[in-house]
Each structure stands twice: as C-alpha cells, then as structure tokens.
Design a protein around this nucleic acid. Structure first.
Lengths: 210, 210
DNA sequence: ACCTGAACACCGTTCAAGT
DNA sequence: ACCTGAACACCGTTCAAGT
C-alpha cells in the first residue's frame, strides 16, 4: 500500500495553487503558442487530472485573465526619461508598442487586452503632452489616441508576421513580404514613420507658431 | 424504394459547390459569430455529412480563405471624390476603416486579413498623396502608414467593444466604458482625431511652408 | 465524381466519488 | 478542502465504402 509516485488517486496532495497553474499556463503558451494550449495539456503538464483545474478556475477564460494579470502591464520606462518633450513622448509610446510586441501572448489571449496603459505610464504620458501646452482634457485625448495607435499597429504587425512568410533579421525587427509583389517591409521603421507623422501633427496643434 | 427527401445515403446528388458552401458559411458566421461556427454545423445547415465538405475544401482554413475572397475587398469610394486633397485623403482612409468595421467577419477570420487595401483603392490613395508634393516612394510609404493606422484602429475598436460593456447609440457609432473609471468614449470621434493628427503631420511634411 | 457513415484523436466542462 | 476518473457534448479530419 505504498504510494510511490507522489499521491494516489483521489484526495489532496497535488498542492496546486492558482499561481502555480498560471505560471505553467504562461510557460506553455510562450513555448508552444496560444493555439496549441489546452486545459488538458496544462493538466498533463502539471501531472494532474483535467478536473483539478476547475476547482481553482471556473473556466478557461478566467484562467486566461489570471495569466494576463500575472504578466502585469508595467513596461520599463528607462528609455523615455531624457530629451525634449517630443523625444520623451515618442519614447513613451514606443515603449508601449515594444512591450506589447514582446508579450504577444497578452494580445493573442482572446483579444482581452484592454487598450489602456498602466496608470503610471498614462499619467507620465499625459504630463509630457501637457508640456506642449495642452490643457488636461486635450492631453488625455491625445494620449488615448497615441495608445490606440501603438496597440493597433501591433495588432496589424502581429497579423502580418503570423500570416505570411517572414524572416526576423534582428530581435524585434523582422521583415515581411506580403501582397501581390513580394515587397519587403521593415515594420519598426514603418512604426517610427507613422508615429513621427502623428507627433508632427500634435506639435503643430500645440505650437501654432508658424 | 422511393427516395423522398432528395437523395439517399451515399452517391452524389447533394449538388454542393464551392460557392454554395462559402455562401452558407458566410451567412452562418454573420448570424452567429465566427466563434460559433464549425464545420459540422455548416454540414448540418447544408443538409450534408461533415465529410462532404472535405471533398471541396482541404480544411477549415482553406474554407475561411474562400469566404474572404467571396466578400471581396472593394469598399465604395463615393464619399472621397471631391474636396481638397486633404479632405479626399481623409475620406479615403475613413472608407477603409468603415469597411473593415462593417465586415468584422473578415477581421475575425483567423487574423488572415492582409493589411492591404484593394489595388484600385491604393492607387487612388497614393495619387492623392502625390498631390501634396511627395514623390512616388514617399507617397507609397505614407499610404501604407495610413492603411495600417486604419486597420489597427479597427482591431482595437473591435477588441474594446467585444470585451467590455458597450451600447451602440447609432449605426457604427458606439460608446464604450473601459478601464478603472467607467469613462465614455466615442470611437468614431477618436478615430477622426487620430487621423486628423496624422494628416496634419503629413501636410506639414509636404508643405514646408512655415 | 461526389457523398455517407463511422471512426480517430482531440476539445472544455461537470460531477459523483474518493481522501 | 482538494483531487480523481469517468462521462457528456462537442470539435476537425480521414477514409473505406457506396452510387
């Protein structure tokens, strides 16, 4: 009657916790993709029966939400701390875009990613925009537009790089060929270009010095 | 030995064609959503066995591609035919955004939507941009940036309206409440704002009259 | 050529039963 | 309280067999 492998059938002893499950789920999704992931594979990975997961989480969607919370939404802000307001704002938006690009799991996760930056990131972004001379409501509107710009661009970027042939030529800097003629696109350069245009418009709206 | 309902088991006579299958698939997806759709439900709807579909299509993904082709990618251009170059360009981009918003099936369809407008739409858009004074390569780059802007914005818009409480207050003009404080956002106004900023930047880059 | 029907290998989720 | 094991109602896909 010795139980070798660990615990026998029934009873407790698996020692599962919400954070254990979430961590394993995130690892599996990062390694094999969100498409590949399933509750049963997660259970197998944890050495547990499928039903066990449903004591800790009501359903798959709730587990996904737990994974998203575990990753957190705190980009690193080191890159946007010096320079002109324009440069710092560009850095700030770029950080958002890079953050989402480096965590595709978050975006692929059932489209549950809310287009909001973290509170601190938003506060700083709005503060920078106010330096251009905008009042609070205008700055908030501009900030929201920039956040949507960055997230939207990443959605498209992800869709393109997933659905077509693409070759990464550097970390976070892939070229894709799409459309009729196999054209090469540097998505990072395209993002910089689009962001630049928008910030030009923002500066113009602020300054009025012409 | 009379076969009433149509054809008996086995043999031909179902009269399936690729276009029939595609049409039924599109209808089901529009009525019940892409999530709800399955090959077996499609077969049931067509009064046919699941395996029958696999004679016409190698797999589900290929069927999805067929659905996308059937919808076509030809927005109506009536709205962007008069006014200043700036107004016509804005109308052109707006048409793209509205088109994708009115065909969410295309975007939800496994993220297979290529971020390219139709050839004619692109040609006209690039021509308008050239009126600002850009040369061909610059105009193409600007056009691509605008296309990505419109498609990306729609992705975010769709994600928000699907994942949070939202109430449509007019066709194509819904308000959403998201984030910590239940704030109201007019997504159409936000898009106009973002597009306006970007076009301001584009005009500025073109003119140089300052 | 075109389709059926049954099978295969999967899903997410539930739930009595165990400890 | 925590987990098992079996079941339920699904999937996409394949394929021998029918006409």
């Amino acid at each position: 009657m010795s139980i070798e492998e660990g615990r026998g059938p029934g009873g407790r002893g698996a020692g599962l916790s919400r954070s254990d499950i979430v961590a394993a789920a995130l690892r599996l999704m990062q390694d094999h993709g969100v498409e590949w992931f399933s509750m049963r594979k997660l259970a197998t990975d944890l050495g547990v029966s499928p039903g066990a997961l449903y004591w800790h989480f009501p359903n798959k969607e709730n587990l996904f939400a737990g994974v998203m919370d575990s990753v957190g939404l705190e980009p690193s802000w080191d890159a946007a701390s010096s320079g002109t307001p324009r440069e710092r704002l560009a850095g700030h938006v770029r950080i958002l875009h890079d953050y989402w690009r480096d965590h595709p799991v978050l975006v692929a996760l059932g489209r549950k990613v809310r287009p909001t930056a973290s509170a601190r990131h938003s506060t700083e972004g709005i503060a920078i925009i106010r330096e251009f001379g905008f009042d609070e409501p205008a700055a908030r509107l501009h900030w929201r537009a920039l956040v949507w710009l960055a997230l939207g661009f990443f959605y498209v970027e992800q869709g393109v790089t997933e659905s077509t042939h693409h070759e990464p030529i550097a970390p976070g800097r892939y070229q894709v060929s799409l459309g009729d003629q196999p054209e090469i696109i540097d998505t990072d350069a395209l993002f910089e270009h689009l962001l630049g245009l928008t910030l030009d418009g923002l500066e113009q709206a602020a300054g009025g010095f012409c």
